[in-house]
Design a protein around this nucleic acid. Structure first.
Length: 188
DNA sequence: GCTTACCACGATG
DNA sequence: CATCGTGGTAAGC
């Protein structure tokens, strides 16, 4: 990969960013509450996978990311560059892409279907390079609490609230902080 | 190469 | 509540 483009956008009091390659494939996405941290993260990621500083643009995928966040679009039909993730990660992400809108699944169920263990799935989900585009927010612990979400690699209460907001917006049914079993989906 | 410590987890008691 | 099993990574030799 020769060079990457970086696009940032602001919406719903969050910052959204994408790294796009020369064929307009998505190399990474990220969301965060502050623009500088987001930029630092995406710069570091660009350096890691292609060794150079990305060039600022206003690529449409940044706006599409906001549309995903707002629930106006569905993940799944984007051209992702899987070159920099492991085979195991790809197996996990392929399952995430099948989780229907309005439903959640858990780490254990994903592990069963790909022949692995829940902790390993957790590490793969946690390192998803394409939040929103690959809907890692639809994976919750088997307790049916919201569980953790990370924005730029850091876990926080705020990011868990973002995860809950996304799920509610997609139609996942809650009772307090717990998801109703009717909103779970089994990858079989 | 190998060893170890770490986890966005889950089952059991 | 505690403890253990678990599999994939990354960082350390």
């Amino acid at each position: 990969m020769d060079s990457l483009k970086l696009a940032l956008a602001h919406g719903s009091s969050l910052w959204f960013g994408v790294l796009v390659d020369e064929q307009d494939r998505l190399a990474a996405s990220a969301l965060y509450s502050d623009r500088d941290s987001l930029k630092d993260y995406l710069y570091a990621y660009a350096r890691k996978i292609c060794g150079s500083i990305p060039k600022h643009t206003n690529h449409k995928l940044a706006a599409e990311m906001i549309a995903l966040f707002e629930g106006e679009k569905e993940p799944g039909n984007f051209d992702l560059d899987f070159a920099h993730v492991s085979g195991f990660q790809k197996r996990v992400y392929d399952v995430l892409l099948k989780i229907p809108r309005g439903y959640v699944t858990n780490y254990w169920r994903i592990a069963r279907v790909i022949g692995s263990g829940p902790r390993a799935v957790g590490t793969a989900v946690a390192s998803n390079p394409w939040p929103l585009f690959v809907p890692c927010h639809r994976v919750v612990p088997s307790s049916l609490e919201v569980g953790n979400y990370s924005m730029n690699g850091s876990l926080s209460h705020e990011s868990s609230l973002v995860k809950k907001k996304l799920l509610e917006r997609e139609g996942v049914e809650f009772q307090g902080d717990s998801i109703l079993p009717a909103s779970t989906w089994d990858p079989r």
